[in-house]
Design a protein around this nucleic acid. Structure first.
Lengths: 189, 189
DNA sequence: AATTATCTACCTACTACATGGTAGGTTCAT
DNA sequence: ATGAACCTACCATGTAGTAGGTAGATAATT
């Protein structure tokens, strides 16, 4: 793997477990074994790194969503896959969604990085809306709520909030507990 | 107001809008108008400040929950009040729950501060469980889900996640969108 | 009542270290 | 001989925290 990717990996790991302000070029340097100044060759400023990190994360996530859409047998399966995606992202319970992690850092992140976060949510919402609409058509997702947008935003809030709860408790069971009710709805449909 | 409280106010404001790592004794100093070193008289270390901040926040929140329990006419009203509490906490959309904000900072927060966060969630969950159980008894809250613990954890995740979404979008409408589905359920019952 | 000691809440001045970032040089493959 | 990918050495600034002093209120002792 090339240095650039290793830098992004290292940065993403710290960022997702301790927040954006928690890692420094010195940490990365010690972590991957090149001098601090050399990192500036790959990412002139820390904000460049932030943007690159978000871009890669968003692209990967988007890919996964795409795959889910095409391979799932019905809308309920798609949404179950979505839950699994967030569950896997937790790793052992210490890695939360990069977007959640970044959202709390000082808003001095530059419009570039801010924009990536907004885009990430936008994409997620659109995907979820499509999933819920498909669920109503194929009958695999039955809910009282009719408004697909409300359902989509509630779902996004649920999984991101579940990440926070899991981060605090430290055990992945917390995530399962928090999404249990929603998951049961998907199984019944 | 005495200096100690002003320090806590200032710290809490920055912490809830930019994260724990975003404020320094220098910021507080400039904000309330005493010298940086004098802050160490009130809070010897930054972690002492963190613990005091969390203690005050938890106590206040607990008080509010208590009030809600005693003054609401039924369980649905209690839960509606809970949603309002989180909505108000957002202020104009930049102030998120202190516990959510702290949960992302480097876990070098000391067991004291970590423990306060766990306690906060514990208290919230217990309060919510009681509310959902009351809702089943008085018939004001009707849901498919039977397990009150699953409902409680899902609700906590929902409101904390809604805070994150609101923080990113910057508008309070986001919060309303995210909890709309749940709130509608409470109104119907 | 006058003096002395103690305590609170601040101050100036400092340290040691971490931070992001820069200047300029070296190695090595193309 | 050009450029990518690194290096050493540095800088200005910000960080939490310390040492030691001071004005003023309060309490204790004579």
């Amino acid at each position: 793997m090339d240095t650039r990717d290793r830098l992004l990996d290292s940065a993403e790991a710290i960022c997702r477990s301790q927040g954006f302000d928690a890692f420094s070029y010195a940490h990365l340097s010690a972590d991957i074994g090149i001098r601090k100044a050399s990192i500036h060759y790959h990412f002139p400023t820390k904000d460049d790194l932030a943007v690159a990190m978000m871009e890669r994360y968003c692209a990967r996530f988007q890919d996964r969503l795409q795959t889910l859409s095409t391979t799932s047998e019905n809308a309920a399966a798609r949404l179950r896959g979505y839950l699994d995606l967030y569950r896997e992202a937790l790793s052992q319970g210490e890695q939360i969604c990069l977007c959640v992690a970044m959202s709390l850092s000082r808003p001095s992140l530059s419009e570039g990085a801010q924009g990536m976060m907004t885009a990430f949510h936008q994409n997620s919402i659109e995907w979820l809306i499509a999933a819920f609409e498909a669920g109503e058509q194929d009958g695999s997702v039955s809910t009282k709520e009719r408004d697909p947008r409300a359902k989509a935003m509630a779902t996004l809030a649920l999984v991101e909030g579940a990440h926070i709860l899991t981060r605090v408790s430290g055990t992945i069971e917390t995530f399962d507990d928090a999404v249990r009710s929603f998951r049961r709805q998907l199984d019944k449909g």
